[in-house]
Write a protein that binds this DNA or RNA. Sequence first.
DNA 1: TACTCACCGTGAATTATATCACAAGGATCC
DNA 2: GGATCCTTGTGATATAATTCACGGTGAGTA
Lengths: 214, 214
Amino acid sequence: MKAEKIPEATIIRLSVYSRNLQYMEEMGITKVSSQEIADATDGSSAQVRKDLAYFGEFGTRGVGYEVKHLNRHLKKILGLTKPRSVVIVGAGRLGKALMLYNGFGNRGFRVMGIFDKDMSKVGEQVGDLTISPMYKLDQFIKTHNIQMGVVTVPAAAAQETVDIMTRAGVKAILNFAPKNLIVADDVKLRNVDLAVNLEVLSFYMGLEEREGEK
Amino acid sequence: MKAEKIPEATIIRLSVYSRNLQYMEEMGITKVSSQEIADATDGSSAQVRKDLAYFGEFGTRGVGYEVKHLNRHLKKILGLTKPRSVVIVGAGRLGKALMLYNGFGNRGFRVMGIFDKDMSKVGEQVGDLTISPMYKLDQFIKTHNIQMGVVTVPAAAAQETVDIMTRAGVKAILNFAPKNLIVADDVKLRNVDLAVNLEVLSFYMGLEEREGEK
DNA sequence: TACTCACCGTGAATTATATCACAAGGATCC
DNA sequence: GGATCCTTGTGATATAATTCACGGTGAGTA
Ligand SMILES: NC(=O)c1ccc[n+]([C@@H]2O[C@H](COP(=O)([O-])OP(=O)(O)OC[C@H]3O[C@@H](n4cnc5c(N)ncnc54)[C@H](O)[C@@H]3O)[C@@H](O)[C@H]2O)c1
Ligand SMILES: NC(=O)c1ccc[n+]([C@@H]2O[C@H](COP(=O)([O-])OP(=O)(O)OC[C@H]3O[C@@H](n4cnc5c(N)ncnc54)[C@H](O)[C@@H]3O)[C@@H](O)[C@H]2O)c1
């Protein structure tokens, strides 16, 4: 792999390519061209090839890519070959929905625990896990060597939650709370913000509406 | 407003600025500098000013911005002054969680209906709405002039769902299904993909691990 | 083996986005 | 009312990402 810095947009696309290759694999398709990958993921074939070029040469000139082979490499690049252990903190509506989501497991992510502060929820069964109290979180992360945390607590509690997680050793966090969180440099943080997504859509709708007025 | 093309990244940041200005407003803070906005949203002050500059001049040199005034303008830009009506299709775990989410309403989004194909779910109460059957969706969108759709059905059903929505007149779609959807040019689509987010985190964790090996 | 074809891999050109740095201008104080 | 701050607004500059376009190379064919 080249030492070059890789755009995050490339990583996002690799994940989407991999998902589509997965579908192709399941459908029994064995070879694919950069153009076909582009069509399936609405991008350009040049973009597909550029993205892959950061990591090596996976295709055969004049032929294309072998679906299984390419997907195996993409999964390797994305770190999906070794299982990733995850905890969810905040067993509310969203936390439980994520807990019960199947799409999790079949990509190598294992939800090992779900935690909540509310003692009336502690003990409740969610899928095949039981909601645990917050005071057990630190020890749980250390004992089970948890690598990733998902934050589904209210915004006001999000910072204290990630502080506990990172102090215990979590190295990556997916945050659903609408709050800008602060983490150490060696911890990777991503925010999923529903409101922001809706507001971006709302902005573009506004543009169309103004067009219409003219 | 200038006719220039505005980066999507700018729109995303404006939404985040607005959220933080909202908090400031609620805390009684009346003035703020681009630097302070940058600190709250981890960006740079130059970035904040550039973003705002696409839409006009909102500050006072030597002083900064009036929180209320700036936030009012940002909301206007984002189209949050007129209420946006929304339907959710797919009353599963995720659809219900979104339905019951408060963060929706206080930014001008009104969930007007929730639909599902499964007749055993139809009639069920979710918050103050009742789950409706799919055959009513088209008429509902037309009658209530629904502008936005949220897709929380399984991937296999996502394309047919957006087809119904767009044919009925929906102009913007937020899709949670892990599927690349096709929509007409005048319909704005955004995808929220949990798996992609986790995989991006996984990738960066992989980089750290390789560092460690050296 | 030689010839053709198809499609990858990649440097170069283009376009987009972010940062820098400073002149412009309003507020405040004497 | 003039001098002094301070922070905005913005052109210029730097960096990053995408698209273009074509040379290189393996596969298939006869
Ligand atoms: N529900 C959605 O559709 C949705 C969408 C986008 C973002 N979000 C965000 O996700 C978060 C959760 O949303 P939700 O709808 O599931 O809310 P919820 O109120 O249903 O769940 C929050 C849970 O967090 C627990 N909690 C509160 N403080 C805690 C603490 N300090 N430590 C541990 N647990 C704590 C609560 O007991 C509760 O069970 C919120 O930040 C919300 O803004 C939700
Ligand atoms: N649950 C999560 O945390 C999560 C996270 C990311 C993405 N997603 C995606 O969101 C979608 C929903 O996930 P979920 O966990 O809520 O699943 P779910 O199975 O709980 O809910 C799906 C709902 O859609 C309904 N449905 C199926 N086909 C339909 C059709 N043709 N028209 C209308 N309704 C139909 C089903 O009856 C069901 O109620 C899936 O595409 C999933 O991949 C879920």
